[in-house]
Design a protein around this nucleic acid. Structure first.
Lengths: 140, 140
DNA sequence: AAATAAATGCAACATTGTTGCGTTTATTCT
DNA sequence: AGAATAAACGCAACAATGTTGCATTTATTT
C-alpha cells in the first residue's frame, strides 16, 4: 500500500520531466498519504529511517514539487508553510481550514468565485488565498 | 495634521486602558496615516528621528495594540506580518489584496459570509482570513 | 514629590527558510 | 554495460523575522 503510493509518486515525477530521486519519491508519497497539509518538520518526522534527508534537500524538493504543481503550499498565521499533494479534487484553487487550537490544516473544496471580487480600478485579479479558522472536531 | 493623528492615537490608547507612551502613540499614528497594511520594518522606517524605538519594543507595542483591537495583523505568503489600524470601516472582518509584484497590501471591504462555509461535521467556524492576490494599479 | 506597576532597551536566543559550493547520483549516450 | 554529464544532494554558513529574560526607565497614581 505504501509501495503503491511510492509507485504513483514516481510516476507523477517522471511525468513532470524531473529526475525520480528517492528523496522526491519519498516526500511525494508522504504527502499523497496525508489528508491534511503538513509542515516541513512533519514531513521530516515521517521520513523512514532508510531515507535520511537533509533539511535543505527537503526544502528544495518541496519547492521543485510545487513548481511542477504536484503539490501546493499554504501559508498560515504561524508563519509556517504547509504542503499538500495536488489530488485531482484539489488541483485548482480551494480554501483551507485551520484549527486555532491544534494548528491542524485541512483542505476545503469550495472557493468563492474569484473574479467578482470588487478590486479598485486598475487592479488585476490573479488568485485567492482563503483560510477559514475555527475549531476542528477534536478540539471543538 | 500629523499632530492631529497623534492626538487621535493617544485618545484611542487611553480609552483602551493602557499607558499612553510616546512609542505607542507614534506607532498608532503612523498606522492611522497609512492606507495600507505595512510591515514592522516599514513602521520602523517611518518613525521620526525624535522617536528612536527598539525593535523589540516595536514588536511588543504592535502586539499590545492588536490585543486591544486598535490594529490588526495580516499574514501573507512572504511570511511577514503586516499591520493596519482598525478604522471603523475595517473594525470587523475583511479581506486583503496583495500585489504579487510589489508586495503592497491593501484592505478590501467585503467578505463572503463566513457561517455558511460548509465545514466537516464537528468543526466550528471562528473567523475567515482571505487574501486576494494579483497586480495593483501601478504594477498591472 | 515619592511610590509603583507598566513599558522599555539590550543581549541573547529560536525558528524557518536560503545560498554557495564541492560531492554524489540518475540518466543518457556510445 | 561503462563513461559522460547535468541535475540533485549534503554540508556549512547565512539571513530574516520574531521572542524571552532581566535590569532600567517612565507614565501614572497617591
Amino acid at each position: 500500500m505504501f509501495n503503491n503510493l511510492q509507485n504513483i509518486a514516481e510516476e507523477l515525477i517522471r511525468h513532470s520531466g524531473g529526475r525520480a530521486t528517492s528523496g522526491r519519491i519519498g516526500i511525494l508519497a508522504i504527502l499523497l498519504a496525508e489528508q491534511q497539509a503538513i509542515t516541513h518538520r512533519e514531513i521530516e518526522k515521517r521520513l523512514p529511517e532508510t531515507l535520511p534527508l537533509d533539511r535543505v534537500t527537503l526544502y528544495r524538493a518541496l519547492e521543485w514539487l510545487a513548481g511542477k504543481s504536484l503539490i501546493h503550499k499554504v501559508i498560515s498565521d504561524d508563519r509556517v508553510w504547509r504542503f499538500h499533494a495536488n489530488r485531482e479534487l484539489h488541483s485548482h484553487q480551494h480554501a483551507h481550514f485551520k484549527c486555532t487550537r491544534c494548528a491542524q490544516v485541512i483542505c476545503l473544496d469550495d472557493l468563492p468565485a474569484g473574479q467578482n471580487w470588487s478590486l479598485p480600478t486598475g487592479y488585476r485579479f490573479q488568485e485567492i488565498e482563503l483560510t477559514v479558522k475555527g475549531l476542528c472536531a477534536d478540539c471543538g
